[in-house]
C-alpha cells in the first residue's frame, strides 16, 4: 500500500516536472518556449539608447514610435560569418519584396549589433553597404551601454556564447516589434515568409 502511494506520488510529480520542463508539453528547447511565451504575452522592451549606423543616438522607444510601422528586429555582429549572414540574406530578400510590393510604409527592418566594442557606426554603415541595405527600409544600430544592451538582450531572449574563434554563437530569429515598444512575436530564422506576414499582420492589428 505504502509502495503504491509513493509510486503514484512519484508519477504525479514526474508529470508535473515534465510539464514544467516542456512549458506545458509544448517545447523541448528554450528557443521554442520563448517563441510560445511571447506569442501568449507580448514583452515590453526595456529602455535602451540605439547608436545608429549614421552615428545618431536615439532611444529605441522613440525610434519605434517615430513611424507607425511594425519592425522586424534581428541580432547580429558584423564579424560573423555564419548565422548573421543568413539573417542578412533573408533581410535583403525581405527588403526587395517590401519595395516591390510597396509595403515600405508598413514594415521596416532593424539589425542590432550586440558587439558595440567592435561595431562602431562606421563599421555598421560599411556593413549596411555590403548588404546593400536601403536606409528607408533597413537600418543598422547597436547599443553602447553595456547594461542597457544586456537588459535588451534579456528581454528579447538572446543568449550569446563566445566560441573558440573569438566570435560568438547566438540564437537567431526574427523579432516582431510593435510601434508601442513591445515584442509581440518571435519567428524562427528559417521562416522568413512567416516573419514578414506576422509583421504585416501586427501593423494591421
Amino acid at each position: 500500500m505504502r509502495t503504491a502511494i509513493l509510486t503514484l506520488a512519484v508519477l504525479i510529480g514526474g508529470v508535473l516536472a515534465l510539464d514544467w520542463a516542456t512549458a506545458g508539453f509544448t517545447a523541448l528547447t528554450s528557443e521554442r518556449a520563448r517563441q510560445l511565451a511571447v506569442a501568449r504575452q507580448p514583452v515590453a522592451l526595456p529602455p535602451a539608447v540605439l547608436t545608429t549606423a549614421e552615428g545618431k543616438a536615439q532611444p529605441l522607444e522613440e525610434w519605434l514610435a517615430e513611424q507607425d510601422k511594425a519592425t522586424l528586429v534581428s541580432f547580429v555582429y558584423t564579424r560573423c560569418n555564419s548565422i548573421c549572414l543568413a539573417l542578412g540574406n533573408e533581410f535583403q530578400q525581405m527588403q526587395r519584396q517590401l519595395i516591390e510590393e510597396g509595403l515600405e510604409d508598413r514594415v521596416r527592418l532593424l539589425s542590432i549589433s550586440f558587439d558595440p566594442a567592435y561595431d562602431t557606426p562606421e563599421r555598421l554603415s560599411r556593413y549596411a553597404e555590403r548588404m546593400r541595405a536601403d536606409p528607408a527600409v533597413w537600418q543598422f544600430a547597436t547599443v553602447r551601454d553595456a547594461q542597457e544592451l544586456e537588459q535588451l538582450l534579456d528581454a528579447f531572449g538572446i543568449v550569446i556564447v563566445e566560441d573558440e574563434f573569438g566570435g560568438f554563437e547566438h540564437n537567431a530569429a526574427f523579432h516582431v516589434v510593435a510601434p508601442s515598444n513591445a515584442l509581440t512575436a518571435i519567428v524562427d530564422f528559417t521562416k522568413p515568409r512567416r516573419a514578414l506576414a506576422t509583421a504585416l499582420g501586427e501593423r494591421e492589428a
Binding site: 509513493l6 509510486t7 510529480g13 514526474g14 515534465l18 520542463a21 528547447t29 528554450s30 521554442r32 518556449a33
Partner: peptide, 19 residues
C-alpha cells in the same frame, strides 16, 4: 519500484534541453 521510477524521472527531466 517508486525509487527507480524517481531516478528515471529525474534523469529524464535534466536531459530536456529547455530544463
Amino acid at each position: 519500484l517508486p525509487g527507480l521510477l524517481y531516478v528515471t524521472v529525474v534523469l529524464t527531466i535534466w536531459m530536456i534541453p529547455n530544463a
